[in-house]
Design a protein around this nucleic acid. Structure first.
Length: 894
RNA sequence: GCCCGGAUAGCCCAAUUGGUAGAGGCAGGGGACUUAAAAUCCCCUCAGUGCGGGUUCGACUCCCGCUCCGGGUACCA
């Protein structure tokens, strides 16, 4: 056990006497300081080099890095370092998504001010990031809680307000009680708050919105062009935007004269105008503005009011649960079907959503499953108007709705049309009579951006009793968040209780006025931070136009998929807004998106069902399988499945511990090696040890031959032996493999595997039976070239160790300033090839050829190979196919 | 239910996109070194690709029909 947690002991053991110990802690600190001193990762803003912008989703400053962060940033760092070596001017920044509720909750719980809490967390996490050796240009760092950051958000908000993109309205809102704030629709997952996981309720409130729905079509259509995004994300956004085409139809009331304001009738949206002739009733959402009004004065009035009241107090999730029974009530009045004049009863129904479409539905029970069930329950007539091929539907005997296509019947002039044709024909009929039109409907709602919390950017408006709502004048920006607030978790928004903040003068009349006390949704800040990195100190606006033109869009964005329809949708929207306001040229912020997989770990539970941390458990491996015991008392432990690391299940490991034990290079390497970036990664301490061992072997290889490294000779001018030629070929091939794996395939795990292979090759080459052998001049030159290449290829993954060993070569240039190696195509090309001979698809022989052997030559050799001849028989072969460089496939004659 | 993914050795993961199933790591076994153990070094075992069909000279790869796992989404009219 002792050795398991004593890496230094282990290092000494791994190292033979001829190598100095690999002291990763001191070594890594030294190189981090050197990079810092030389500003190795500063962006050359005006260089002639092509730019490359790599960005990882910036973290919320919780105070501690978790493995998900480490993985995310390690991936980004490889790309950043690689692109830099490939000659790009790389922008690779880092900052802090610093507003948000944890800070405020911590303040309520512990009395620490959110600002102090946040700043000290930032300091701690910055330190952790720096100890990972990530290649950020730290001069560009900022936190979104900096007034100099959010002032531009306030500025833009005022521009949006002027253009009517930002507006305020009242209505039912998502309310999270534990968080004491409203939430945007995107931030409600499965009826629960995305942050705290508690059930979201509905509440009638006023708040600010951004008209994202104006951009719905554009946001949707442009997804098709985002070929660099994972389909999982674009498809989620498509679903979320939820565009459906159909018709908007007006149903007049039977006695509309009696109801003021309903002269045009009730509007419904449908995707199935072809079924209009089959409409036998109408359903309104309980919250529909006409539900109560229609019932008023009818015998149904009292019952309808009671129903609406009950629905209002029924939990939304419960009411909308699909298992919930259809329920409704006749409202006491009739409407007229605009195409056939049929008198249809109007119902209110629990399953009709107030905020989708118009909150009113034309019900076609024969062709919609929900309407079918409702009609069954309340004895409403079903009318078949779509007849599927080869089947005669009969309303009386149907057991479920027919929702597919078919031929029209009972539909007046449209009988005989296909449902597709009828969709257009019915719309045309409606349009001719002014009773409806083709329409598109979206599921997407406007983005609610007000939050009733303190730790956010103030919304820069003022309310005056006489002048109404007034924007804060530009010269009074930023509206600073006051520091001196009472945070006790009581009595609603802290700013609303801070008189010094809200009491102000009307900018228009100078009279007494009140500031808005809600703050912005923190997704507002993360919707443009990538832009600010282009010119983080710019004082003239959000971004310096020249810097934006140079660096945008982000070439490679990396982060978790959990933001598929929150951050990533808002950022696309916001970028469009800024383009339309003239601040930007681009519409899409992120050219390529990589969503890394989760970091997972086995779970452990004690006999009494408690979750245990991996550190509390010992595991022994026997033939019968693995068994686990609790370290403290040796009691049995149940090994559970591998799951995403989470605090609640205690299956987390702390990056800090592992960095101390093995070093940042090892941890980075493991995160990149154990799985391809987009897939889930199973944390394995054994695997970490394997990566550590690999780095130790690299270390040892260089030190074993340190005397050679100081005097590199170009091997291309030397006469090389067989083994040296072969090794050199492998070295150059490895350059090609690693380059392609990083650049084209984003397959970092196989890039590392190739580097490991190269190490194995170099080790075998310079030793005999594990002991260093004598190398001639050619051998030495090839070996040294191999070590050089190895370090260059390794440097994006394990930069500290690579730099340390690189310094054994002459010159004092950092690897960070050295170009990526180029392979010599002549050397990388194989000299011989092994061709497999298959007879009827079965491998029968292998033959070696020079790479320039001709097809005829190869086919001929294959056909006379003794192992092949046996399977051919006497007749001439029916087919002989040559796949260049790979195989000869033969089908014998009969 | 629908829409995405995924399933290859005891485990993680490769396979140049239809051409020799195995690169890399872990675990396991053997050997060298050692008084011994550990460490280190060298060597080795193990699957025929979730299941059933099909196309093909040839299928992990393409087609059809399933199973299981993961993710998203759902009275959206």
């Amino acid at each position: 056990m002792a050795c398991r947690s004593s890496p230094f002991l282990r290092v000494e053991r791994i190292m033979s006497e001829q190598s100095p110990p690999y002291e990763h802690a001191a070594l890594e600190r030294r190189w981090q300081q050197r990079w810092h001193k030389e500003r190795s990762f500063a962006v050359a803003e005006h260089s002639d080099l092509p730019k490359y912008y790599v960005l990882e989703m910036f973290p919320y400053p919780s105070g501690r890095l978790h493995m998900g962060h480490v993985r995310n940033y390690s991936i980004g760092d490889v790309i950043a370092r690689f692109k830099k070596a490939r000659g790009f001017d790389v922008l690779h920044p880092m900052g802090w998504d610093a507003f948000g509720m944890p800070a405020e909750n911590a303040a309520i719980a512990n009395g620490v001010h959110p600002s102090r809490w946040t700043r000290s967390n930032i300091a701690a996490m910055r330190d952790q990031l720096q100890r990972l050796g990530l290649s950020y240009d730290w001069d560009r760092e900022f936190a979104t809680c900096d007034a100099e950051y959010y002032r531009w958000e306030q500025t833009i908000f005022l521009e949006l307000l002027e253009r009517g993109i930002a507006y305020k309205k009242g209505g039912l809102l998502n309310w999270c009680e534990p968080c004491q704030t409203t939430l945007a629709n995107e931030q409600v997952e499965d009826g629960c708050c995305w942050r705290c996981g508690n059930l979201v309720t509905q509440r009638e409130m006023e708040q600010w919105y951004l008209r994202i729905t104006d951009y719905a079509d554009d946001l949707l259509a442009a997804l098709d062009e985002l070929s660099g995004w994972p389909a999982a994300v674009t498809s989620q956004q498509r679903t979320w935007i939820g565009r459906s085409t159909g018709a908007s139809i007006f149903f007049e009331l039977e006695d509309s004269a009696q109801l003021e304001g309903l002269e045009g009738g009730i509007e419904v949206f449908t995707t199935r105008p072809d079924t209009l002739y089959g409409c036998t009733f109408m359903s309104l959402a309980p919250e529909h503005p006409w539900t109560r009004k229609l019932a008023a004065g009818t015998p149904q009035e009292e019952a309808v009011n009671a129903f609406v009241d009950r629905m209002g107090t029924t939990d939304r999730a419960q009411r909308m649960d699909e298992g919930a029974a259809k329920e409704g009530l006749f409202v006491g009045r009739y409407a007229l079907n605009p195409v056939n004049g049929r008198r249809i009863p109007i119902y209110t129904a629990n399953f009709v959503l107030a905020d989708y479409g118009t909150g009113a539905v034309m019900a076609v029970p024969a062709h919609d499953q929900r309407d079918f069930e409702f009609a069954d329950k309340y004895g409403i007539e079903k009318l078949v108007v779509i007849q599927p091929d080869g089947e005669a539907l009969d309303a009386a005997s149907m057991t479920e709705a027919w929702t597919g296509a078919g031929q029209l019947r009972n539909s007046g002039p449209h009988d005989g049309l296909s449902s597709e044709q009828a969709k257009q024909a019915v719309v045309a009929e409606l349009e001719a009579h002014g009773r409806g039109k083709a329409a598109v409907n979206f599921r997407l709602r406007d983005w609610g951006i007000s939050r009733q919390r303190y730790w956010g950017a103030p919304i820069p408006v003022i309310y005056c009793q006489t002048c109404g709502m007034q924007p804060v004048p530009a010269d009074q920006l930023p509206v600073q968040l006051p520091e001196d607030v009472v945070l006790d978790g009581e009595g609603g928004s802290p700013l609303a209780r801070h008189e010094g903040f809200w009491r102000t003068e009307c900018p228009s009349c100078g009279g007494q006025a009140r500031r808005e006390t809600d703050t912005f949704d923190t997704f507002m800040e993360s919707s443009w931070y990538f832009l600010r990195y282009c010119s983080p100190q710019y004082l003239g606006g959000m971004v310096d136009a020249e810097a934006a033109a140079r660096f945008l869009p982000v070439d490679q964005y990396i982060g978790g998929i959990e933001h598929a329809v929150m951050h990533l949708l808002y950022a696309r929207f916001y970028t469009r807004l800024l383009r339309d306001l003239g601040h930007l040229e681009v519409a899409e912020p992120f050219r390529q998106l990589l969503c890394q997989g989760m970091v997972c770990h086995e779970t452990y539970r004690s006999e009494d069902g408690q979750w245990l941390y991996p550190g509390e458990v010992d595991i022994s491996v026997a033939e019968s399988g693995r068994t686990a015991f609790r370290k403290s008392d040796g009691s049995g432990v149940r090994i559970g499945r591998v799951e995403k690391m989470s605090k609640s299940k205690h299956n987390t490991v702390d990056p800090e511990t592992f960095i101390e034990r093995y070093g940042a290079d090892t941890i980075r390497l493991f995160c990149l090696f154990a799985a391809p970036p987009h897939k889930d990664l199973d944390w394995s301490e054994k695997g970490v040890e394997g990566c550590y061992r690999f780095l130790c072997r690299v270390w040892k290889l260089a030190h074993q031959r340190s005397e050679l490294l100081g005097a590199a000779v170009d091997p291309s001018s030397l006469e090389l032996g067989e083994a040296a030629t072969e090794l050199r070929h492998r070295v150059h091939q490895t350059i090609d493999r690693v380059t392609r794996d990083i650049d084209e395939r984003m397959q970092l795990n196989t890039a590392i595997a190739a580097i490991m292979e190269l190490l194995n090759g170099l080790s075998a080459f310079h030793t005999t039976n594990g002991v260093p052998r004598d190398l001639n001049e050619g051998d030495a030159a090839v070996f040294v070239e191999g070590v050089q290449v190895l370090l260059m290829l390794l440097s994006p993954f394990a930069p500290h160790l690579s730099d340390e060993l690189w310094s054994m070569f002459p010159g004092d240039k950092l690897l960070e300033d050295s170009p990526w190696p180029n392979s010599d195509p002549a050397v990388a090309a194989a000299r011989t090839m092994t061709v497999v001979v298959q007879v009827k698809g079965k491998k029968r022989a292998e033959i070696s050829f020079a790479v320039d052997a001709s097809e005829e030559e190869i086919k001929a050799a294959a056909l006379v190979h003794p192992k092949v001849v046996r399977f051919l028989g006497d007749a001439p072969p029916r087919m002989v196919k040559y796949v260049p460089g790979r195989l000869v496939a033969i089908v014998p004659g009969t």
